[in-house]
Nucleic acid binder design. Sequence first.
DNA 1: TTCGTCATGTAATGGGTTACATGATTAC
DNA 2: GTAATCATGTAACCCATTACATGACGAA
Lengths: 192, 192
Amino acid sequence: MLEFAVLGLLQESPLHGYELRRQLSARFGTVRSFSFGSLYPTLNRMQSAGWIAADDTQAAGKLGTRRKVTYRITAEGKERFAELLGEGGPSAWADENFDVHVAFFGQTEASTRLRILEGRRGRMEEKREEREEVLRSTRSRMDDYTLALQQRGLDSVEREVRWLSELIDHERAGGAAKPRQTGSTTTGPTQQ
Amino acid sequence: MLEFAVLGLLQESPLHGYELRRQLSARFGTVRSFSFGSLYPTLNRMQSAGWIAADDTQAAGKLGTRRKVTYRITAEGKERFAELLGEGGPSAWADENFDVHVAFFGQTEASTRLRILEGRRGRMEEKREEREEVLRSTRSRMDDYTLALQQRGLDSVEREVRWLSELIDHERAGGAAKPRQTGSTTTGPTQQ
DNA sequence: TTCGTCATGTAATGGGTTACATGATTAC
DNA sequence: GTAATCATGTAACCCATTACATGACGAA
């Protein structure tokens, strides 16, 4: 996941670790933001694998002091990224990966985009079913807090299904207009 | 987390591992459901710690064949659970723990409940601010997919803030009526 | 008698975290 | 000159997962 995100960002432009992490939080912060303790070792691994390379054109202000290791993607890295982009199976619509895949949809083939969105929707529909069943069968035994939690859970799954359906419709229509949120987040804040 | 959830469920009634996992998925499935590979070792650890005990009243149908190890909570386990219930600091409103805490709010002190809800809201408000800032500053450079993702992220954070505010209001009012979802999930499905 | 599901467990692995350590650069 | 933040890295650990292995029980 980190690997995929890093390749995607470096595909756009070379970056050093610290800055990379900032972009990571901004772009994928919906999901999580990574710690340096996992970022730097990952960068080293990826370099060993040949997917990225350190730009040794570093400032060299004082002699010997290398700071700011800027990484760029290599040809092999681009290949690897393309491979990951093409991944349209279940792993692509798993919780940990889905958001990152969507973030790179701009570079993903249309058919793969559709597969991922539909796969994700299918999975969310299953989840909705499960949640509905739980609510149906145990509602009476639940206290108010558990109930509130369950309903919120169900609600957010339903919302995701709707959101996905909108995106899918746009895909099928050719993806001309911008897909928008179900709620009107942008127009008026916090009105219910 | 698993530990906390297990103690809470065993507090209600003794259960064996397999059944425990089912309840876990039903009650906390909003967050995640655990695999046996983590459940069973956890049960053994908790038994060693003295928080739970295996009921060896198992069926003994054939001699020597023990199946269905039913666990019950011990006095020490109850103490430990109470300790976890009382935890109202940042760890209680972290993503991984918050839902479980809410699920056990029925057994949590009112003041702790409020602390957790307000702590969570504070954190979500920060997150909202961050997301708004990202949208404000990079909207123009974002493609449609990234934008859709970002807006959905912001929307769900805003929703959580509203949900928390409702719960907090109910807490302050004495918690008489059932706290409800913002959207009308229960009344009419899938109308926006 | 065989298949599905109930039931328990282990081993290897993975993917991250926190805490720690170090030092340069910038702003006051 | 000193504090904040930029910047990189390591080591110990944690909590989970997957894959594997085993076997009882009930139903067709």
